[in-house]
Amino acid sequence: MEPILEIKNLTYTYSIGTPFEHTALDQVSFRVNWGEFIGIIGHTGSGKSTLMQQLNGLLKPTSGTVMLDGKDIWSDKKLTREARFRVGLVFQYPEYQLFEETVYRDIAFGPKNMGLSAEEIDRRVREAAGFVGLTEQQLEVSPFDLSGGQKRRVAIAGVIAMEPEVLILDEPTAGLDPMGRSEILGNIQAYREAKNATIMMVSHSMEDVARLTDRLLVLNGSKLAMEGTPGEVFQHAEQLQQMGLNIPQVTQVFLHLRRMGLDVQSVYTIEQAVEALKRLKGGTVQC
């Protein structure tokens, strides 16, 4: 099947022709398949945020192409605008973009811009609110009266309400408490399952990306440094550390165990670790 997004030799340079010229993306190419959950990891300033803004046509590539569903999003003005709605983008700290008088109206902003009918807008707002766990009463209060975590969920609902086929999130859990983080990640999963959506998530939590994603893109110094399943990527612990990244703690522990001479495979989620330990224990009991 055709990939939903195909990025070819994408290069982007900020402020060309000024002393502040800076290449944020350098010859990046990759594909995203329908329904995939992709994790994007990289050190601060590696080009993650710039990459995200390329995918829905907010920034125009200096060179290279972004193909959405087989069509170059910059080949036609209509396609660029369409890309805005088909690829939903949730920025870092999205709660700072809330502006309406009620939560309901804020979530409805995106669908309204799409020119949908009133009934359709209403359905989408309520459904999106459901995905992020907002109650009916909360829809009628001012977004500025909510707590930080709730505001963030309203902002995410504002993008989900456009029902994008690809949902891109830039560190959606930054600055939240553990409870808020697992709620947001659960909301994203719920949306993915209900709509068969493709998800791309920038994250600094190796545990989260190991647990949730199908594939990882590793950015380093404006270039795509690695690409593969979490299992493949986390094999290269040393390389990742050189890029200022890390591997999940549990993977570190198991690497250490192996160095100590225990017969364990490398794992990268808690569940796998539990399985491996059970197997190991079963083995010793049998002896």
């Binding site: 907010l58 805005r84 709605f85 973009q97 456009m162």
Partner: peptide
Amino acid sequence: DKIMSAQKARGAD
């Protein structure tokens, strides 16, 4: 700049 990008991502024109 940031807020403008975020609202554009929600289809603001």
